[in-house]
Amino acid sequence: MNWQFACNKAEIPEGGMKEMRIGEIPVLLLRAEGEVFAIPPLCPHMEEPLVNGMCDGTTLICIKHLWQWDLRDGSPAGDAEIGLLKYPLQEDADGGIQIMVETELRYEYQK
């Protein structure tokens, strides 16, 4: 189990998103209210790319059907029926973002 360097925090503007791969695994990084989060890139509802969505504070909103989650704990809000999966993430002293990606996180319906 290893932490892997993803990017520098400064590469993601406040409210912005960055798509990337850690090895073969696609990850979406988001920066909201100063904190960076790492999640699977597709909406757990209809697999809409969440990079098309929007952040309102720490609330992530999918553009397709407006499902919402609190990025801090992944909890669903509004119409969302299931929570958001998150990859463990840590920030080093130099602003480097490291993610723990052992296996690809998949929602129940994808298994």
Partner: peptide, 19 residues
Amino acid sequence: IDACLRHLVVGARIPPTRI
């Protein structure tokens, strides 16, 4: 629709459940 959604949710702060 997508452009209006961004405005209504983030700009006007209308909850998505009311759109």
